[in-house]
Amino acid sequence: MDNQKNVMVFIESRNSKVAEVSLELLSAASRLAQELGSSVEAVALGHNLEEELKALGHYGCQRVYYTDDERLSHFTSVPYAKTITRIIKQYKPGVVLFGATTMGRDVAPRVASALKCGLTADCTDLQIGEHKIKEITYENTLLQIRPAFGGNIVATIVSPESVPSMATVREGVMKMNLPDPDKTVEIIQEPCVIDEDDFLTEILDIVREEKQVNLKAAQIIVSAGMGASDPETIGLAKELAKVLGGELGCSRPVVDSGILDKEHQVGQTGITVRPNLYIACGISGQIQHRAGMSEAKRIIAINKDPQAPIFALAHYGIVGDVKDVLGKMIKAYKTKA
């Protein structure tokens, strides 16, 4: 078997539970491995995770290389990076995928730096294809697709000359397969060969905070962009979300300006949502934003600029001042017959 083609997923576990994004990545890895005619593998670290890891099989994982050590029960950079690097060197996968979470974004670049291989952040699509560099054609290369800065531009990134190709993907971007309880995974125990000197981070406290908003699960999202970012309009957007039983989302500059928290951000570097209804208020519709909401079942766009790209995507377009339109919507809903 040609190891070089296997697709490996880093299994993130928090609080002894496998993160949802890891299952989404296994589903994506299954599709890639099928195309490559190879296997789906995983690398997991933690303590007493065996039971939890069995479920990986249901999502298409064939083998998981598992390093169990009490000192790995909580994430720290150097021990995790060294362990993952060692597993990759030993089993030589062709592709390695990480969730673009705080953990994935901490450890993946460290691993890529150690292996001197390419890493593409926040991919919105992954495919298999070929790539030519001068005379050489690289078959079965990972095509890492992500929106590029500005405009309506999507870039396809490849790194065929270094193995493996690595990518991070945000939670919610890849669709999760329906679990198949008949499929099983082989758990391969790996020794923990980390020096005591490598445990450089001392964890003094871990505090869990309930998430204030759950955009991913919301069926209705009212989303505010820079055209709706003044306090009065944000207030109206919030009110509409509330009366409709939905959540408040926003574009990135609204977060960057400190108006709303990051957990409200929709898009390539925020949250990917698929609600029944998405109301884009004063959002221009740049590709990084669309990457996170284009699969909403219905989209209403409110914008004063009739040329705004968001209208090309919307099922219903309302040209006008967003404050004015939101007021009308709230009134219409409250007085619905």
């Binding site: 396809t156 790194s159 065929p160 790209p309 209208f311 090309a312 377009g317």
Partner: peptide, 20 residues
């Protein structure tokens, strides 16, 4: 190691859109 293979501009598939 990472190379840009291609840059594509996305043509928005015009969905059935209604002006309200």
């Amino acid at each position: 190691p990472t190379k840009v293979k291609k840059i594509q501009s996305v043509v928005l598939a015009a969905c059935e859109s209604r002006q309200v």
